[in-house]
Design a protein around this nucleic acid. Structure first.
Lengths: 189, 189
DNA sequence: TAGCTTTTTTGTCATTTGGCAAGTGGTTTC
DNA sequence: GAAACCACTTGCCAAATGACAAAAAAGCTA
């Protein structure tokens, strides 16, 4: 819980009363490995903040292959569409790769917070933009490199994640086959 | 100008008075081919909306190669960082690929609009989110495919752009060399 | 622990892509 | 109009990656 508050405070100020309001609305939940936080086609009912663990977002491309679009690591806010969209139906899967801990808010509570705390929306907007910018950067930084460089780039950017994510997920994120990645790992050693 | 208003109206409602305010603050400018709208390291002073033409965003990777991160086509709002950031200094170049027409606002005018029109910020947020989501989608859709499929994907998504963008820019966007793309084009014919 | 399942590694070979250099065609410049 | 320039194309070969299959390793369950 405190992790979430600290995180938010990086993006804007909140007074004690406001912090208490947020805390009063928050629920801490656990998500076990392989469980889903979102599933394609099913309405999303919560806003969540990941405090522990790793999630991955994946989808199926036109060849039916499962592609990891990105990983979500600790200290990351998970919003549906543009902030709170009443009827947001994802087209992707958001699955726990490890056991996870999250702080979640119902959409209604999130709305209450937004209506009560002046400046809340602008804080959230900053967070969203930060996340998006990072994802786009990471993605396009990968494209100009060969597979080995992409992998090195990945372990540099996610040093804590490499050993906690199955090889096949990393491979699909990097756009190579699992066997290629296995060979790349061998060559690096 | 009207293009901009119409575009914004897709994301939220505005009354006549509010539309007039926006129009009164807007300036129409032209950007010639190869001119820059942003340059890495130089402060950005305007918010712009592209009504005609194509821009590209590029940067230099750690090998000093020029990499096109993405293209911006007509009907696209160009914001600095998270909406209006007073001191935003880009790390990338934003260059006109063709002659362009834009509607621009000074940061101060943009702020005035934001403070006067209730709901403006939320409209802008929706637009930002839409743009970001598209970019992330496009990028990760590319990564799981071979070069030919990436190019076919590109011409499917940007049918209007293919013939207006130099081959070498498209190649760097797709993460392949210019000669490879040239060969791919030959094979497709 | 044995047996089963899943993930990762490895081998072999085909295909794709890159690197480099030369060639082509079009445009600009003086 | 010749020279210089630029973007694109092409040829040749090397290197990287994929496809497929089998083996090895790791994880899970009874």
């Amino acid at each position: 819980m405190d992790t979430f508050i600290e995180y938010v405070l990086q993006f804007g100020n909140l007074n004690k009363q406001q912090i208490d309001l947020i805390k009063s609305k928050a629920t801490e939940i656990e998500l076990h490995k392989d469980e889903y936080y979102w599933e394609a086609g099913k309405a999303v009912k919560q806003i969540g903040f990941l405090t522990d663990g790793i999630l991955r977002v994946y989808y199926y491309n036109n060849k039916g292959e499962e592609i990891t679009r990105y990983f979500i690591d600790e200290e990351h806010l998970i919003l549906s569409g543009n902030n709170v969209d009443e009827f947001f139906i994802p087209s992707e899967y958001l699955q726990a790769i490890t056991d996870c801990k999250m702080v979640v808010f119902s959409k209604q509570d999130w709305k209450d917070i937004s209506e009560t705390i002046i400046g809340w929306d602008s804080i959230v907007q900053k967070i969203i933009t930060r996340h998006h910018t990072e994802k786009i950067k990471r993605r396009s930084d990968l494209i100009s490199q060969d597979a080995t460089a992409r992998y090195l780039d990945f372990i540099e950017k996610f040093p804590k994640l490499v050993n906690r994510i199955p090889l096949s997920y990393i491979a699909s994120y990097l756009g190579i086959t699992a066997s290629s990645l296995s060979r790349i790992r061998k060559n690096i050693r």
